[in-house]
Design a protein around this nucleic acid. Sequence first.
DNA 1: AGAAAAAATGAATGAGGGTCATTTATCAGG
DNA 2: CCTGATAAATGACCCTCATTCATTTTTTCT
Lengths: 242, 242
Amino acid sequence: MNEGHLSGEGRIVSQANATSLNKTRRQRVELKEEAIVETARRLFNEKGFGKTTISGIAKGCGVADGTVYLYFKNKEALAQAVLEAFYRDLKETAQDGVDALDSTEEQLRFLAEHHLTKVNQERRILELLPIIGVSLDNYKDSKLFTLNKSYARVFDRVAKSGVKSGVIKRDLAPWVLRDVFYGGLDYASRTMMMHERTDNFSAVVDGLMAMMLVPKSAANSALEDVAERFDKIAERIEKSIG
Amino acid sequence: MNEGHLSGEGRIVSQANATSLNKTRRQRVELKEEAIVETARRLFNEKGFGKTTISGIAKGCGVADGTVYLYFKNKEALAQAVLEAFYRDLKETAQDGVDALDSTEEQLRFLAEHHLTKVNQERRILELLPIIGVSLDNYKDSKLFTLNKSYARVFDRVAKSGVKSGVIKRDLAPWVLRDVFYGGLDYASRTMMMHERTDNFSAVVDGLMAMMLVPKSAANSALEDVAERFDKIAERIEKSIG
DNA sequence: AGAAAAAATGAATGAGGGTCATTTATCAGG
DNA sequence: CCTGATAAATGACCCTCATTCATTTTTTCT
């Protein structure tokens, strides 16, 4: 550990009051906690929950096995912390990206690509969710649930504004839209992973767009035009024969 | 074990040739194998992979711990067998249901409801998939991959015929349709589980239908009307010429 | 019946999660 | 700078469970 130069910081603070003193100690503690979570995140993502050992995590960030248990009740609690970190990051980068764009379609495309990228990057982190007991009855007031909801809200805001501006079909419930959107992406990413073809992300996104967005009236009116023409042709034929 | 009355069967067979002898032995063996898989399926589904013990499974079907390892290389192989059984059943019941229906829309609705029912019933079985190493490079020639594909084909056939008959939008790639369909269902079932509201399955299915099917719009029926008229005209022309 | 083959057993092994008595580091007051 | 008090860290130890294997039981064939 690099406590050496931190002790200097500590000595300065020792002249201050008890509060700021506690603060620096807490800061050090939080630094170590982050290190543990970060290492766990890396290892869980490399080998999955089952094949990752506490020993491995402890070694990975230079602490003793027992130390991990000072910070997290057990392996599952650590996995939960990892998931929370993942979701926090996911939500934040998603919101930032959306804020930098204007049109609903651009925003949806960004969200799709962003989700696929992140989820592929840390595929095995998401797999922790079922492992750490989804069946938890206290899930609804867990940090995880809150984070999950706040990530969902990023999409919901985009969808809402899209419906209001008439870009998105209005007969679809927003939560259904969201489930289909993210569900379709997750599933597609999984099947594409299995077939080792990550190239046609865009086909899925295009498909989703086609299903969600109101068709550009051009295409639609073109059909109507054709119908009209056929109508006239039919009349002519009927006359010439009749 | 109820080997007592089976020994009688065995004595009869002992008068037959070596082939049928092997067969009955294999039958007994397969019966036990099925019993192990069935117990494992139940326990995995109740407690998940991590919290299910080999001892528990062995006790659950009245064999010794070691016996399980005569049938399956290890816990993961057993989990894989469970998954295979699950997919086989899923595919078969799906196909049967589809065969009993006529219209594309009915078939799609059936597939959706069927999938949701089965997946909810054995939620934790599906969670085995990521646990037993998706990253397997030999996945593409595994039984699991084949079964997965054959389940997907049930949907694909319905979708194909739906596209051909004009009920399903034709500008969507079939595999995209499938990913969005099943992905949306899985995701929705998960979120509904979390919110403990399994009542609005139908909202999701309705949403999916609305997104996949060609809207029965004025424009569309206009086209169909014209097509019908052309049909009749063609008939008349053919008659008057022939 | 009785030898050979097949199947089943469960005690033993070892890996890894989790605990806790002990050690080490930090800090405030003199 | 020293000292007792408190916080943090350690790693040996215990326990559960997957997996192995020498031994026992059952089945088959002559």
